[in-house]
Amino acid sequence: MLELRLVQGSLLKKVLESIKDLVTDANFDCSATGFSLQAMDSSHVALVSLLLRSEGFEHYRCDRNMSMGMNLNNMAKMLKCAGNDDIITIKADDGGDTVTFMFESPNQDKISDFEMKLMDIDSEHLGIPESEYHAIVRMPSQEFARICKDLSSIVDTVVISVSKEGVKFSTRGDIGSANIVCRQNPSVDKPDEATIIEMQEPVSLTFALRYMNSFTKATPLSNTVTISMSSELPVVVEYKIADMGYIRFYLAPKIEE
């Protein structure tokens, strides 16, 4: 038996909106730790890792570890039927082939049940090594989204370079080139608006903007985004989910030949 009651149901709606275009089908894993997901896009260039910790739910019952295969597009369609202020409860029976999403309006005058068929998904769970990153940039998530959107209208790849000077987003294409530098800007008054750089050594990597743009669909989940880079590893773009956990996107860099 599984029963997870999330008072801030909008968080789950936002999570699905942020991953449904990147990943088609995925297994949601439920354990004492929380409700989690790890999945790659179909071309194995990006990986998403989601954790909603059990403590973040008002009620969290998971009698035994469960893995539930879901089509994320269909799940998103159902969650779109929940109001932004609704409480969402996820229910499933052990060994069952369906999951139920229950939506309760804040004053309890409307209760909806949506039942969705589960799928068998052969997923490959990957071990993500703990890493010390060469550079970690924390910046306003809206600023990052704006930069990715602006640059993707010009070219399809971006070079992200971190130095003491700041973080630089550069592109070069048929019509010309662009450089956007965000300088370190620790803001004591408004920490969400600060750009903070922790750098062990300078790092510069090239990425497909199409994926970066897709990650920024998680912007409504958090005011800030953290970008962690090392020269030998996929970049990690992380959005914290208020007191509950995180959504992390890993993107393999383009490799010089």
Partner: peptide
């Protein structure tokens, strides 16, 4: 020239 890297060449199946 660059080619797109693959997640599976960085993270191994667990």
């Amino acid at each position: 020239d660059t080619r797109q890297g693959n997640i599976l060449s960085f993270f191994k199946k667990s």
